[in-house]
């Protein structure tokens, strides 16, 4: 058992894990009881587990807790709250851009990371930025509209 310290949503969090190679996803979900990042494949193929690490959208199922130490980690919970929504979260609600909502974490986190770097993406850029985020319910068109709305609402 070893102790790891992570910087998550602006707070320093300590947790114990038996294996330094444990993916960050399980530290966030099981040790820190966060619900935002989701287990979808554990293979880095679907994007459901996306978090933002030092400004980049990262698959938390492919990043070990060891590697994540000392980095700034933001999860969906840290992006905004129901009372203080991040513009991307607000846009997803305005567009009702979900069905089951299981992929939504990844969509929002990837979009937020995109807009940090490219505040005014065209539709092709938006689509390409979400190429690694799968949605099974078929909300593709609403997700694209939501990100475009969020981009338009930024000043």
């Amino acid at each position: 058992m070893a102790r790891f310290t992570l910087n998550v949503n602006g707070r320093s969090e300590s947790l114990d894990a038996d294996d330094p190679e444990m993916p960050l996803l399980y530290a966030l979900r099981d040790n820190l009881a966060l619900h935002g990042p989701k287990f979808g494949c554990g293979l880095g193929q679907c994007g459901s587990c996306t978090v933002i690490v030092d400004g980049n959208a990262v698959r938390s199922c492919q990043t070990s807790v060891r590697e994540a130490q000392g980095k700034r980690i933001t999860t969906l919970e840290g992006l905004g709250t129901p009372d203080r929504l991040h513009p991307v979260q607000a846009a997803f609600i305005a567009e009702q851009a979900a069905q089951c909502g299981y992929c939504t974490n990844g969509m929002i986190m990837s979009a937020a990371a995109l807009l940090e770097k490219t505040p005014r993406p065209n539709e092709t850029k938006i689509r390409d930025a979400l190429a690694g985020n799968l949605c099974r319910c078929g909300t593709h068109v609403r997700v694209i509209a939501a990100v475009a709305r969020a981009a338009g609402s930024r000043t």
């Binding site: 619900h35 935002g36 969906l76 919970e77 129901p82 929504l85 009702q96 909502g101 939504t104 929002i108």
Partner: peptide, 21 residues
């Protein structure tokens, strides 16, 4: 009316509890 879904604010902010959570 296109009333907004009550579960989406929780789902969009990581506050909703799925069975997986």
């Amino acid at each position: 009316q296109p009333v907004q879904r009550p579960d989406l604010p929780g789902k969009m902010t990581g506050r909703h509890t799925y069975v997986q959570d």
